[in-house]
Every structure is written in structure tokens, then in C-alpha cells.
Amino acid sequence: MSLAGILKERSDNEKKTKVITDASQAIRNLKRQNKTIEERTKFLRKQICEGNLEVGNTENNDNDKNTVSSESAELLYRISKSNQKLEGLACLTGITATKQGNQIVYMFDPFVQGKHKGTYYIRFGPSYTLLEHNLPAGINVRKLYKETFDARKQNSSENLKDFLKIVFRYLRSFLSREQQVEDVKDGDLALHLKHIETRHQHTDITVTLQIREEGNEEANLVEIGLEYEMDAERPIPGSLKVKVPESWEEALDSMIEQCQVLYTLRLKEGILSAFKE
């Protein structure tokens, strides 16, 4: 290699080394700045909670560490209010979150009739990208995600909050309908149950009962049909259908009237109330 080539290679290597050194220094500076910001934010939140923080103008920031600008105080106030809302949402609905690297996992712990159902989760990547979930097949999570995020053409924390609330409503409603069907199969009502059929993720339920008239040993079959919305625990108004034997046709209107309680009560309680002596 010629002398000129050697000098050029050496110059290129020196430039590369300088670029790497500058980048490393920039990364260290950013880490220090980030640590300083985190410590400052933690200190300011503590001062706010203790009532020791004074709100002033930006000129005083360098003179008193206990004084913060009005703009910073307003920003911290909004952050605190947002955190309070998220904490309240978690307490009221049973939704919690945990960060795993650059991903966030939201966990759902619904209770139905005092019984814990779960835990279910949804995993998000950066920019609210939906990665995976373990919710029941009865909840079309990706469709709900598209309706909440894609339809609004923006990714924001407000979209996320709405999405989580909608998913939780669909999840709890599905689990409730599922549990109502199981409840019908147990207890005293099970003695009169001939058959129960569910379709379309428990949104179409048909209950066939064996009912005996007083003094008659032969049981007659009464069929009750109900339809539900995907995000509802009670039947759709007007969806009730009742079928009775031909010999009971005259009493059909009266029986339909009795079954109106199914719109407001859980399935088992509604049937027991409708056919109580």
C-alpha cells in the first residue's frame, strides 16, 4: 500500500473512533439527564404531597430547589390527576398493568357472583401496538382494538383507556352469561331442567323446563328463548320467546307476562321467580 493510502486509512480510522467516542459521550450525557429528571420529578411529587412546594416564576428556579415554575406545577398536577384516574380505574374495575421491557401488560381480574374469573391479559408493544392476549374466544379483542384505535386514526392514552374499559365490559358480560348458564344446571332448578342450549358465545340461550301441573304426574315442556348483546348481562328487550304445549296455549300470554322478570334478574333467579308457586 502506498504512503498516501496508509495515511488515508489512518485518517478514516481516526474519524470513526471520534464518531464512536462522541456517541458514547452523548449516551452518557442523556443517561445523566434522564436520572436528574427522574430525581427531580420524584422530589417535586413528594413536595406536592407534603404541601411544601411553592409555585413561582421561572426566574426563581435556580435560587430555591423548593420552588417550581407555574408551567411545571401545572404539568405535574395533570400527571398526578392522570395517575389518580388510572389508580381509580384499577380499583373499580380490577384492571392492573405491569411493564416488561418495552412492553406493557394489562391484566383483568373480574369477579362474577363473588367468584374470581381470570387472570386475563392483553400485551402491548410500543405506540400501543396490540401483541397478544388470552381472553376467551367470545371476545373479539382485535376487532374492538380496530374500532377504538384505527377508527379514530390516532394512538393516544384516551384511546387506550376507552379500549380497556370496553374490553372489560365485554369480558365481564361474557363470563356472567357463561356463569348464569352454569347456575341453571345446579341446585333446585336442575331438577326441572330438561335441556339448555347456548349459541353465538352465549348470546342466544334456550332453556327447556319440565313443568308439572298440580295433581298431574306427566310433565309438560316449556321452552324459553333469550337473546343478548355481546357486551350485556341481561337479555335484549323484546327478545323473550316462550313455547308451551298446545294444551297450555290459553295460558301463554300469562306465562310470557310472568317471564318478564328475566329482563332484570339473572337467568336462574328470573326463572325461579317466574314459576314460583
Rank of each mutant, 00 (worst) to 15 (best):
M1K: 12
K8M: 03
S11Y: 11
S11E: 11
N13Q: 11
E14A: 10
E14R: 15
K15D: 05
K16F: 05
K16Q: 07
T17Q: 12
V19A: 10
T21F: 09
I27D: 07
R28A: 06
L30W: 14
R32T: 12
Q33W: 11
N34T: 13
I37C: 03
I37A: 09
F43C: 03
R45A: 04
I48Y: 13
I48K: 14
I48T: 13
I48W: 14
C49E: 10
C49W: 14
E50G: 00
E54D: 08
V55K: 14
G56D: 05
G56E: 06
N57D: 10
D62P: 07
N63A: 07
K65H: 10
N66Q: 05
N66Y: 15
T67R: 13
V68I: 15
S70P: 04
L75N: 13
L75G: 09
I79Y: 14
K81Q: 07
N83Q: 10
N83K: 12
E87S: 11
G88W: 07
A90T: 01
A90N: 00
L92A: 12
T93G: 02
T96H: 10
A97N: 10
A97S: 12
N102L: 07
V105S: 08
Y106N: 01
Y106C: 01
F108E: 02
D109Q: 13
D109R: 15
P110N: 08
K115N: 07
K115V: 11
K117R: 13
K117L: 04
K117M: 08
Y120V: 01
Y121V: 02
G125R: 00
P126T: 05
P126N: 01
L130M: 01
E132Q: 12
H133K: 00
H133W: 03
P136H: 00
A137R: 15
I139E: 02
I139T: 05
N140Y: 10
N140G: 01
N140M: 06
R142Y: 11
K143W: 09
E147N: 10
D150I: 04
D150V: 09
A151E: 07
A151G: 00
R152K: 11
N155Q: 06
S156G: 04
L160A: 06
L160D: 01
F163M: 03
L164D: 07
I166N: 04
F168K: 11
F168S: 04
R169D: 05
L171R: 04
L171V: 12
R172C: 02
R172D: 03
F174C: 02
S176D: 09
Q179P: 02
Q179L: 05
Q179E: 10
D183V: 03
D183C: 06
D186P: 02
G187M: 03
D188R: 14
D188C: 05
H192Q: 07
K194Y: 10
K194T: 09
K194G: 04
I196C: 00
I205K: 01
L209K: 06
Q210D: 08
Q210A: 07
G215P: 00
N220M: 04
N220Y: 13
L221E: 11
E227H: 15
E229Y: 15
M230S: 09
D231Y: 14
E233D: 07
P235V: 02
I236A: 00
K241E: 05
E246L: 12
E250K: 14
A251P: 01
A251Q: 06
A251D: 08
L252R: 14
Q258C: 08
Q260R: 09
Y263V: 00
L265M: 12
R266Y: 08
L267C: 02
G270K: 05
G270W: 03
K276S: 06
E277Q: 13
